[in-house]
Protein backbone atom coordinates (compact mmCIF):
# COMPACT_ATOMS: atom_id res chain seq x y z
CA UNK A 1 0.00 0.00 0.00
CA UNK A 2 1.46 3.27 -1.01
CA UNK A 3 1.76 6.19 1.40
CA UNK A 4 -0.93 8.19 -0.42
CA UNK A 5 -3.50 5.42 -0.43
CA UNK A 6 -6.54 6.06 1.65
CA UNK A 7 -8.04 3.76 4.22
CA UNK A 8 -10.32 3.56 7.22
CA UNK A 9 -8.85 2.70 10.58
CA UNK A 10 -11.13 1.43 13.32
CA UNK A 11 -10.22 1.77 16.95
CA UNK A 12 -11.93 -1.36 18.25
CA UNK A 13 -11.61 -0.10 21.84
CA UNK A 14 -13.86 2.80 21.02
CA UNK A 15 -16.41 1.00 18.86
CA UNK A 16 -19.58 0.40 20.85
CA UNK A 17 -21.36 -1.67 18.21
CA UNK A 18 -24.12 0.82 17.49
CA UNK A 19 -24.31 -0.07 13.77
CA UNK A 20 -24.62 3.63 12.89
CA UNK A 21 -21.96 3.18 10.20
CA UNK A 22 -24.05 0.48 8.54
CA UNK A 23 -27.07 2.77 8.47
CA UNK A 24 -25.06 5.74 7.23
CA UNK A 25 -23.59 3.62 4.44
CA UNK A 26 -27.02 2.42 3.32
CA UNK A 27 -28.33 5.98 3.21
CA UNK A 28 -25.30 7.47 1.51
CA UNK A 29 -24.99 4.78 -1.16
CA UNK A 30 -28.71 4.09 -1.44
CA UNK A 31 -28.41 0.35 -0.88
CA UNK A 32 -31.58 -1.71 -0.41
CA UNK A 33 -31.76 -4.34 2.34
CA UNK A 34 -29.52 -7.29 1.61
CA UNK A 35 -26.04 -6.30 0.56
CA UNK A 36 -24.00 -4.76 3.34
CA UNK A 37 -21.05 -2.72 2.22
CA UNK A 38 -20.05 -2.41 5.85
CA UNK A 39 -21.08 -4.80 8.58
CA UNK A 40 -20.36 -4.54 12.29
CA UNK A 41 -19.18 -7.91 13.59
CA UNK A 42 -19.42 -8.80 17.26
CA UNK A 43 -16.44 -10.61 18.79
CA UNK A 44 -16.11 -11.94 22.30
CA UNK A 45 -12.64 -11.96 23.72
CA UNK A 46 -11.20 -13.11 26.99
CA UNK A 47 -9.49 -10.17 28.64
CA UNK A 48 -7.88 -11.02 31.93
CA UNK A 49 -10.39 -13.22 33.70
CA UNK A 50 -13.52 -12.01 32.02
CA UNK A 51 -15.09 -11.95 28.60
CA UNK A 52 -15.30 -8.61 26.94
CA UNK A 53 -17.31 -7.69 23.89
CA UNK A 54 -15.63 -6.03 20.96
CA UNK A 55 -16.99 -4.85 17.67
CA UNK A 56 -15.28 -4.51 14.36
CA UNK A 57 -16.92 -2.76 11.42
CA UNK A 58 -15.90 -4.76 8.36
CA UNK A 59 -15.92 -2.97 5.03
CA UNK A 60 -13.53 -3.29 2.12
CA UNK A 61 -9.92 -2.74 3.14
CA UNK A 62 -8.85 -1.56 -0.29
CA UNK A 63 -5.84 -3.84 0.04
CA UNK A 64 -2.44 -2.90 -1.30
CA UNK A 65 -2.48 -6.02 -3.42
CA UNK A 66 -6.12 -7.00 -3.61
CA UNK A 67 -6.78 -10.70 -4.03
CA UNK A 68 -10.02 -9.92 -5.80
CA UNK A 69 -8.37 -7.99 -8.60
CA UNK A 70 -6.35 -10.66 -10.44
CA UNK A 71 -9.11 -13.28 -10.29
CA UNK A 72 -11.69 -11.10 -12.02
CA UNK A 73 -12.13 -12.57 -15.49
CA UNK A 74 -13.59 -9.42 -17.02
CA UNK A 75 -11.20 -6.85 -15.56
CA UNK A 76 -14.12 -5.25 -13.73
CA UNK A 77 -12.11 -4.59 -10.58
CA UNK A 78 -9.48 -1.89 -10.58
CA UNK A 79 -7.32 -0.08 -8.05
CA UNK A 80 -6.90 3.63 -8.45
CA UNK A 81 -3.35 4.90 -8.50
CA UNK A 82 -4.10 8.21 -6.85
CA UNK A 83 -5.83 7.06 -3.68
CA UNK A 84 -5.73 3.26 -3.80
CA UNK A 85 -9.48 2.87 -3.86
CA UNK A 86 -10.54 -0.50 -5.27
CA UNK A 87 -13.51 0.01 -7.54
CA UNK A 88 -15.75 -2.33 -9.47
CA UNK A 89 -17.25 -1.49 -12.84
CA UNK A 90 -20.84 -2.68 -12.99
CA UNK A 91 -20.75 -2.60 -16.76
CA UNK A 92 -18.03 -5.21 -16.87
CA UNK A 93 -19.00 -7.36 -13.88
CA UNK A 94 -20.71 -10.64 -14.78
CA UNK A 95 -21.51 -11.64 -11.19
CA UNK A 96 -19.38 -14.79 -11.27
CA UNK A 97 -18.38 -14.33 -7.63
CA UNK A 98 -14.73 -15.21 -8.17
CA UNK A 99 -13.93 -12.19 -6.00
CA UNK A 100 -16.15 -13.61 -3.25
CA UNK A 101 -13.92 -16.65 -3.19
CA UNK A 102 -10.74 -14.66 -3.31
CA UNK A 103 -11.45 -11.98 -0.69
CA UNK A 104 -10.50 -13.23 2.79
CA UNK A 105 -12.65 -10.57 4.43
CA UNK A 106 -16.04 -11.07 2.80
CA UNK A 107 -16.07 -7.55 1.39
CA UNK A 108 -17.73 -8.20 -1.99
CA UNK A 109 -21.50 -8.16 -1.81
CA UNK A 110 -24.04 -9.35 -4.30
CA UNK A 111 -26.21 -6.48 -5.49
CA UNK A 112 -29.79 -6.79 -6.61
CA UNK A 113 -28.70 -6.48 -10.21
CA UNK A 114 -26.72 -9.69 -9.83
CA UNK A 115 -23.42 -7.90 -9.91
CA UNK A 116 -20.74 -7.43 -7.31
CA UNK A 117 -20.72 -4.25 -5.28
CA UNK A 118 -18.71 -3.21 -2.28
CA UNK A 119 -17.43 -0.29 -0.27
CA UNK A 120 -15.97 2.37 -2.54
CA UNK A 121 -14.72 4.54 0.32
CA UNK A 122 -17.46 7.01 -0.69
CA UNK A 123 -15.30 7.92 -3.66
CA UNK A 124 -17.71 10.68 -4.66
CA UNK A 125 -16.96 12.44 -1.39
CA UNK A 126 -13.39 11.43 -0.67
CA UNK A 127 -12.06 12.32 -4.10
CA UNK A 128 -12.91 15.91 -3.26
CA UNK A 129 -11.29 15.77 0.16
CA UNK A 130 -14.35 14.58 2.06
CA UNK A 131 -14.77 11.73 4.49
CA UNK A 132 -16.78 8.50 4.01
CA UNK A 133 -20.29 8.50 5.44
CA UNK A 134 -19.53 5.76 8.00
CA UNK A 135 -16.58 7.69 9.41
CA UNK A 136 -18.37 11.01 9.63
CA UNK A 137 -21.34 9.34 11.31
CA UNK A 138 -19.54 7.26 13.92
CA UNK A 139 -20.89 8.63 17.23
CA UNK A 140 -18.12 7.16 19.35
CA UNK A 141 -15.41 8.49 17.09
CA UNK A 142 -14.00 5.06 16.57
CA UNK A 143 -13.41 5.38 12.87
CA UNK A 144 -10.65 7.34 11.24
CA UNK A 145 -10.10 8.10 7.62
CA UNK A 146 -6.95 9.25 5.92
CA UNK A 147 -3.97 8.23 3.90
CA UNK A 148 -1.93 5.35 5.26
CA UNK A 149 0.73 7.89 6.20
CA UNK A 150 -1.73 9.92 8.20
CA UNK A 151 -3.18 6.82 9.79
CA UNK A 152 0.20 5.46 10.84
CA UNK A 153 1.06 8.73 12.50
CA UNK A 154 -2.31 8.59 14.25
CA UNK A 155 -1.62 5.09 15.46
CA UNK A 156 1.79 6.11 16.76
CA UNK A 157 0.12 8.89 18.64
CA UNK A 158 -2.52 6.58 20.00
CA UNK A 159 0.04 4.07 21.11
CA UNK A 160 2.22 6.62 22.82
CA UNK A 161 -0.68 8.29 24.60
CA UNK A 162 -1.87 4.95 25.90
CA UNK A 163 1.48 3.71 26.99
CA UNK A 164 2.29 6.95 28.76
CA UNK A 165 -1.02 7.04 30.50
CA UNK A 166 -0.42 3.52 31.77
CA UNK A 167 3.17 3.86 32.79
CA UNK A 168 3.14 7.44 33.84
CA UNK A 169 4.81 10.38 32.20
CA UNK A 170 8.53 10.68 32.30
CA UNK A 171 9.18 7.01 31.89
CA UNK A 172 8.85 6.52 28.17
CA UNK A 173 11.27 3.63 28.03
CA UNK A 174 8.76 1.39 29.78
CA UNK A 175 6.10 2.33 27.29
CA UNK A 176 6.57 -0.88 25.41
CA UNK A 177 4.26 -3.11 23.50
CA UNK A 178 3.57 -5.16 26.60
CA UNK A 179 2.49 -2.05 28.45
CA UNK A 180 0.21 -1.09 25.60
CA UNK A 181 -1.25 -4.54 25.70
CA UNK A 182 -1.98 -4.11 29.37
CA UNK A 183 -3.70 -0.87 28.51
CA UNK A 184 -5.79 -2.61 25.92
CA UNK A 185 -7.35 -4.71 28.63
CA UNK A 186 -8.82 -1.70 30.31
CA UNK A 187 -12.34 -0.80 29.52
CA UNK A 188 -11.58 2.82 30.07
CA UNK A 189 -9.49 4.03 27.19
CA UNK A 190 -7.78 7.32 26.90
CA UNK A 191 -9.83 9.55 24.70
CA UNK A 192 -8.02 10.40 21.60
CA UNK A 193 -9.21 13.20 19.45
CA UNK A 194 -9.00 12.54 15.78
CA UNK A 195 -9.77 16.11 14.99
CA UNK A 196 -6.16 17.07 15.44
CA UNK A 197 -3.68 17.23 12.64
CA UNK A 198 -4.55 16.37 9.10
CA UNK A 199 -7.33 14.04 10.10
CA UNK A 200 -10.87 15.07 10.39
CA UNK A 201 -14.00 13.06 10.60
CA UNK A 202 -16.67 15.69 10.69
Amino acid sequence: MAYNHKAIHVDTFRCVGCHACEAACKVEQNIPPGPKWIEVIEVEKMVGAEYKMFWKPMACFHCGEPDCLPVCPTKAISKREEDGIVLVSKDLCIGCMECFRACPFGAPQLGFDGKMEKCNLCVHKTAGGGVPACVSTCPSEAMFFGTTQELSSLMRKKHSVRSISVNGAGNPSVGSASAAKAAEGRTQVVRLSNKAGALSNH
Binding site: K75, S78, R80
Partner: peptide
Protein backbone atom coordinates in the same frame (compact mmCIF):
# COMPACT_ATOMS: atom_id res chain seq x y z
CA UNK B 1 -5.04 -17.33 -17.95
CA UNK B 2 -7.60 -16.80 -15.22
CA UNK B 3 -5.07 -15.35 -12.81
CA UNK B 4 -3.58 -13.12 -15.46
CA UNK B 5 -3.35 -9.85 -13.65
CA UNK B 6 -5.43 -7.33 -15.55
CA UNK B 7 -4.00 -3.92 -16.17
CA UNK B 8 -5.50 -1.62 -13.57
CA UNK B 9 -7.81 0.75 -15.33
CA UNK B 10 -10.85 2.57 -14.18
CA UNK B 11 -13.88 2.62 -16.39
Amino acid sequence: ILSKTPVPTFH
